[in-house]
Write a protein that binds this DNA or RNA. Structure first.
Lengths: 237, 237
DNA sequence: TCAAAAGTGTTTGCTATACACCCATGT
DNA sequence: ACATGGGTGTATAGCAAACACTTTTGA
């Protein structure tokens, strides 16, 4: 162990979002999984899933790996959030954390395992976390809500096909406000981000709803030159 | 030197923007300083200013330090851009680069030193750079142009007070298109991001222009929970 | 008095919002 | 039949773009 070895460590953490019904009201809300730390600093506290960056894996790969290890799921959307590296953020060591945020399908997350050391929390009822992770979660939530309004990420919570009501429910859950169904329909259909499949979904005690599919070819231009083609476990691949 | 010492290194680089007249046309355009690498990999190539993260300095501090070392200037605006950490981005070593982007006052940058190993380039005429730095510059330019349209950063290129023509010239230089003076005035004045000082600027062979000052209290809400109060060398402090 | 930029007024068109209304299904 | 959400039509307000016009200076 040389003097250099005590220098800067690199870790990758991920804020993982899914939608679940609120425990009391039953309304859909944003949830995220946390893991319990098993050693100091902050032993016993809840923290974001993550770990040291392996020398042979890319940053997004590392984020997707811890996501899979924590939730047994694959991300439908994955994007870098921010690099946190203040000198005082981890007592006794210098850690730079590259933080990603991810969206997973809510139907898959609904059956996800919970263990003694992994638990899902409602985004607005997060306990006191280790390190600066409360700030990180706040920032990730802000980015999610912000980006939902000018980008095309809502479908990542849903399956291959979906009705506009389901898509609207996603928006309402994330933004925490109800939206006019008529205007929402025009907005989404006009944006070209979804395409009707031709099928409908029957079963409700009302008129059947048209099914839509996400339009991968729609230009969104929300990530600029970093929109790599078909990068592994990256964005909307 | 243990096996661990060969692991992941952390560097901080900065894309520094200023406005200067185009060499041929004389119109204001975006420029940035690059430094010549003195050793391999990519020895002799131009690259972004930066260096290894010191264990006792915050990320933004490191960015501001290399900025000052390169240009002898202080940033008027400084924001984290992205963390680049692909395994293959630096031959023979594993480097994660936290990249910042900065705006400096154009009048200060106009007299900045150029040496054998530091030169300013026009943003649209960048040579082949070391590492993935061309991609980084492209992304920084995209962010600059994007953020200029929904945020209040243009004043960072100017001094304490400025006329709306000067502010419009900044927008036109960055966005590379001419803007209607009348509509620009209404847009800026209506946003509350600037306040008239009461003074005017005489000297042109035309009606004197009112002088404005940036309004620090105006809410912009473009950085969410990360808008720390009075962070050193951070953002619009 | 004239050129040039500062600054004001007005029209037009697009888009978001609100909400009235009709449609198609299960019970 | 009727309740329930799916889906369409339409009026209105606000805002951005285009552009005509007036103001104030230096030469």
């Amino acid at each position: 162990m040389t003097a250099h070895a005590a220098a800067v460590q690199v870790a990758v953490s991920t804020v993982i979002f899914a939608l679940r019904p609120h425990e009391d009201t039953g309304r859909m809300t944003v949830w995220l999984p946390l893991v319990r730390r098993i050693r100091d600093p902050f032993g016993g506290r809840w923290a974001l899933p993550g770990g040291p960056l392996e020398p042979d894996e890319d940053l997004a790969e590392s984020a997707a790996r811890t996501l899979a290890e924590t939730t047994l799921l694959a991300p439908q959307y994955l994007e870098q959030l921010y690099a946190f590296g203040n000198t005082d953020r981890s007592p006794g060591e210098r850690v730079v954390s590259i933080v990603y945020w991810a969206l997973v399908r809510s139907d898959e997350a609904a059956v996800a395992v919970e263990t003694e050391n992994v638990r899902w929390f409602e985004a607005d009822s997060i306990p006191g976390l280790a390190f600066d992770h409360n700030l990180i979660v706040d920032y990730a939530l802000w980015r999610l809500r912000n980006k939902l309004e000018y980008s095309h990420i809502a479908h990542a919570f849903l399956g291959e096909t979906f009705t506009l009501s389901e898509l609207r429910e996603v928006h309402e859950a994330v933004l925490q406000k109800s939206l006019d169904p008529a205007n929402f329909r025009r907005q989404i259909e006009g944006s070209g981000q979804v395409v009707p499949t031709g099928d409908v979904q029957t079963g409700g005690r009302h008129r059947p709803a048209r099914l839509y599919r996400y339009n991968r070819d729609a230009a969104d231009g929300t990530s600029g030159p970093l929109a790599w083609p078909a990068a592994p476990a990256q964005g909307t691949t």
